[in-house]
Protein backbone atom coordinates (compact mmCIF):
# COMPACT_ATOMS: atom_id res chain seq x y z
CA UNK A 1 0.00 0.00 0.00
CA UNK A 2 1.18 3.52 -0.87
CA UNK A 3 2.30 5.70 2.04
CA UNK A 4 -0.68 7.57 3.50
CA UNK A 5 -0.51 11.35 3.39
CA UNK A 6 -0.94 13.73 6.32
CA UNK A 7 -4.00 15.98 6.59
CA UNK A 8 -2.17 19.09 5.40
CA UNK A 9 -0.71 17.31 2.38
CA UNK A 10 -4.09 16.55 0.80
CA UNK A 11 -6.45 18.50 -1.47
CA UNK A 12 -9.46 19.78 0.49
CA UNK A 13 -12.80 18.02 0.83
CA UNK A 14 -11.62 14.55 -0.15
CA UNK A 15 -11.42 15.71 -3.76
CA UNK A 16 -9.64 13.51 -6.25
CA UNK A 17 -7.83 15.96 -8.47
CA UNK A 18 -6.42 13.65 -11.12
CA UNK A 19 -8.40 11.35 -13.36
CA UNK A 20 -8.06 7.58 -13.54
CA UNK A 21 -6.78 7.03 -10.00
CA UNK A 22 -9.02 3.96 -9.58
CA UNK A 23 -6.39 2.22 -11.72
CA UNK A 24 -3.95 2.55 -8.81
CA UNK A 25 -6.28 0.97 -6.29
CA UNK A 26 -5.31 -2.61 -5.45
CA UNK A 27 -8.80 -4.04 -5.00
CA UNK A 28 -7.11 -7.44 -4.93
CA UNK A 29 -6.49 -6.69 -1.23
CA UNK A 30 -10.18 -7.38 -0.65
CA UNK A 31 -9.95 -11.00 -1.88
CA UNK A 32 -10.84 -13.85 0.44
CA UNK A 33 -10.84 -16.57 -2.20
CA UNK A 34 -8.46 -16.74 -5.17
CA UNK A 35 -9.44 -18.02 -8.62
CA UNK A 36 -6.90 -20.57 -9.85
CA UNK A 37 -6.95 -21.13 -13.59
CA UNK A 38 -6.22 -24.46 -15.32
CA UNK A 39 -5.15 -23.81 -18.92
CA UNK A 40 -5.53 -27.48 -19.88
CA UNK A 41 -9.32 -27.35 -19.34
CA UNK A 42 -9.89 -23.92 -20.93
CA UNK A 43 -11.68 -23.61 -24.30
CA UNK A 44 -11.29 -19.80 -24.53
CA UNK A 45 -15.05 -19.27 -24.53
CA UNK A 46 -14.47 -15.90 -22.83
CA UNK A 47 -17.41 -16.28 -20.46
CA UNK A 48 -15.15 -15.37 -17.54
CA UNK A 49 -13.85 -12.30 -19.37
CA UNK A 50 -17.41 -11.22 -20.19
CA UNK A 51 -18.76 -11.70 -16.66
CA UNK A 52 -15.82 -10.39 -14.61
CA UNK A 53 -17.01 -7.13 -12.94
CA UNK A 54 -13.43 -5.83 -12.54
CA UNK A 55 -11.89 -6.61 -15.92
CA UNK A 56 -9.47 -8.85 -14.10
CA UNK A 57 -9.40 -11.55 -16.79
CA UNK A 58 -6.39 -11.09 -19.03
CA UNK A 59 -6.95 -12.03 -22.66
CA UNK A 60 -5.09 -11.50 -25.89
CA UNK A 61 -6.80 -11.90 -29.24
CA UNK A 62 -9.52 -14.08 -27.77
CA UNK A 63 -7.10 -16.28 -25.87
CA UNK A 64 -7.42 -16.51 -22.08
CA UNK A 65 -4.08 -15.57 -20.50
CA UNK A 66 -4.80 -15.58 -16.79
CA UNK A 67 -6.10 -13.46 -13.96
CA UNK A 68 -4.98 -10.02 -12.81
CA UNK A 69 -4.75 -10.43 -9.04
CA UNK A 70 -4.09 -6.71 -8.56
CA UNK A 71 -7.77 -6.07 -9.29
CA UNK A 72 -9.48 -9.46 -8.75
CA UNK A 73 -11.72 -9.17 -5.65
CA UNK A 74 -12.35 -12.92 -5.57
CA UNK A 75 -16.08 -12.72 -6.24
CA UNK A 76 -15.98 -16.12 -7.96
CA UNK A 77 -18.30 -15.29 -10.83
CA UNK A 78 -15.67 -16.55 -13.31
CA UNK A 79 -15.52 -19.96 -11.64
CA UNK A 80 -19.28 -20.05 -11.53
CA UNK A 81 -19.84 -19.38 -15.22
CA UNK A 82 -16.96 -21.49 -16.56
CA UNK A 83 -18.52 -24.39 -18.56
CA UNK A 84 -15.37 -26.52 -18.17
CA UNK A 85 -14.67 -25.93 -14.47
CA UNK A 86 -11.29 -24.53 -15.46
CA UNK A 87 -11.33 -22.02 -12.59
CA UNK A 88 -11.27 -23.12 -8.95
CA UNK A 89 -11.73 -20.79 -5.98
CA UNK A 90 -9.11 -21.48 -3.29
CA UNK A 91 -8.85 -19.81 0.15
CA UNK A 92 -6.36 -16.91 0.23
CA UNK A 93 -4.84 -18.41 3.37
CA UNK A 94 -3.14 -20.99 1.14
CA UNK A 95 -1.19 -18.22 -0.54
CA UNK A 96 0.00 -16.21 2.45
CA UNK A 97 3.58 -15.12 1.87
CA UNK A 98 3.54 -16.15 -1.80
CA UNK A 99 3.76 -13.82 -4.79
CA UNK A 100 0.58 -13.18 -6.82
Amino acid sequence: MAELKKWYELPIAGLIVEPGTARKYRTGDWRVKRPIYDRSKCIDCMFCWFYCPDQAIIQENGVMKGIDYFYCKGCGVCANVCPKSAIEMRPETEFVGKED
Binding site: K6, Y8, L10, I12, G14, L15
Partner: peptide
Protein backbone atom coordinates in the same frame (compact mmCIF):
# COMPACT_ATOMS: atom_id res chain seq x y z
CA UNK B 1 -8.62 19.56 -14.98
CA UNK B 2 -11.17 16.89 -14.12
CA UNK B 3 -11.90 16.35 -10.42
CA UNK B 4 -14.08 13.98 -8.46
CA UNK B 5 -16.38 15.37 -5.75
CA UNK B 6 -17.85 13.06 -3.14
CA UNK B 7 -15.68 9.99 -3.65
CA UNK B 8 -15.74 7.23 -1.04
CA UNK B 9 -13.44 8.21 1.84
CA UNK B 10 -12.98 5.48 4.42
CA UNK B 11 -10.97 4.99 7.61
CA UNK B 12 -7.72 5.71 5.77
CA UNK B 13 -8.50 9.37 4.88
CA UNK B 14 -11.88 10.60 6.26
CA UNK B 15 -10.28 11.64 9.56
CA UNK B 16 -7.66 13.76 7.73
CA UNK B 17 -10.38 15.55 5.77
CA UNK B 18 -12.29 16.35 8.96
CA UNK B 19 -9.06 17.72 10.46
CA UNK B 20 -8.82 20.05 7.42
CA UNK B 21 -12.31 21.37 8.22
CA UNK B 22 -11.25 22.05 11.80
CA UNK B 23 -8.32 24.03 10.42
Amino acid sequence: HPVTYGALDLYDYYFEHKRQQIE
